[in-house]
């Protein structure tokens, strides 16, 4: 394939990655923004979303669409409830102290991952996409006869991948509407701004925290349900989304939803594009070092003024 078509393909792949990453990172960003909690188990909630999606889609049977739609609703809900319960039972008792919470979520990471290994098993399982038409993409070249279009071999995407992008946009807009326009969003923003004052105004902060933690995890699970027809569900699949979400949230500025979305698109796209042309390992090395350097040289700007 020539460079041009190759680039188009890379951009398309990047878009799909960016879409899923946006949802996952939004969840992490929301939790950090409102609760000042770094949730290391976030990637495991992503993984749980994928595994539950497999479970739901499989147990329902029938047309793939039915199973997929059921998974789309049930899996994030289930993950959200689980996460909220974990917050209520564990993190609430640590007073959401930043250091202790990090350690506890590391523990939660292992518990979730290992219980999945013990029940779901070490194998990866696919979920059948609800629809999956191949869409060939035309390319052009200049010949003696002028501009000509043709369909290069290998340059294609699927209807499902386009659906993932569209679904992520809809979900992202939903989160924005919720935060900016709803009463719940107002309560979340008030809690984020000043926990003490929110408490004084009668906002049940602990319950808001549990809700936020659950909602953040549900967003990750939603991203996972979308991705699982493309990438199989596996108990170790939470690592990459966690790392990438960290990168996105730090580059985008913690707690800033707009920054998170922009950074997710940037990182998702560049990760997709770089992985097509270069080694994915090299791309990850550069990304991790970039994050470290951003934190080192602009810590206040990105993490706010909150020493632990």
């Amino acid at each position: 394939m020539e460079f041009g078509p190759h680039l188009i393909l890379a951009i398309l792949e990047g878009l799909v990655q960016a879409s899923v990453l946006t949802l996952t990172a939004l969840g992490l960003s929301l939790v950090f923004g409102v609760m000042r909690v770094v949730n290391v188990a976030h990637g495991e909630f992503f993984m749980l979303g994928a595994v539950f999606a497999y479970g739901v889609a499989n147990s329902i049977g029938g047309a793939p669409v039915v199973g997929f739609v059921a998974a789309l609703i049930v899996a994030p809900l289930l993950v959200g409830v689980l996460a909220a319960a974990a917050d209520w039972l564990i993190l609430r008792r640590l007073d959401h102290d930043p250091e202790r919470t990090i350690v506890a979520t590391i523990g939660m990471l292992y518990v979730i991952q290992q219980i999945t290994l013990m029940t779901y098993g070490p194998d990866a399982h696919p979920v059948t996409p609800p629809f999956n038409q191949r869409i060939a993409i035309p390319w052009f070249e200049f010949t003696d006869k002028g501009l000509e279009f043709y369909f290069p071999w290998g340059l294609s995407t699927t209807s499902y991948k386009l659906f993932v992008v569209a679904a992520a946009i809809v979900a992202g807009l939903g989160v924005w509407l919720l935060m900016a326009r709803s009463r719940l969003g107002l309560i979340l923003r008030a809690t984020q701004l000043d926990r003490e004052t929110a408490l004084a105004f009668g906002i049940p902060v602990q319950r808001v925290y549990a809700l936020t933690f659950g909602f953040g995890a549900a967003l990750a699970a939603l991203g996972a349900v979308l991705v699982v027809p493309i990438q199989q569900a596996h108990y170790l699949m939470g690592g990459d989304p966690l790392l990438l979400s960290f990168i996105v949230v730090i580059i985008g500025g913690l707690g800033s939803l707009r920054g998170t979305v922009l950074a997710a698109i940037l990182i998702g796209m560049s990760n997709g594009i770089i992985s097509v042309f270069f080694s994915p390992t090299l791309a990850k090395i550069l990304a991790t070092l970039l994050v470290a350097m951003v934190l080192v040289y602009r810590p206040q700007g990105l993490f706010g003024k909150k020493p632990a």
């Binding site: 770094v38 990090i102 470290a292 934190l295 990105l302 993490f303 909150k306 020493p307 632990a308």
Partner: peptide
């Protein structure tokens, strides 16, 4: 410091 230090070492 704090959370940023943890993440920098992780990265």
């Amino acid at each position: 410091i704090g959370v940023a230090f943890m993440i920098v070492t992780l990265m």
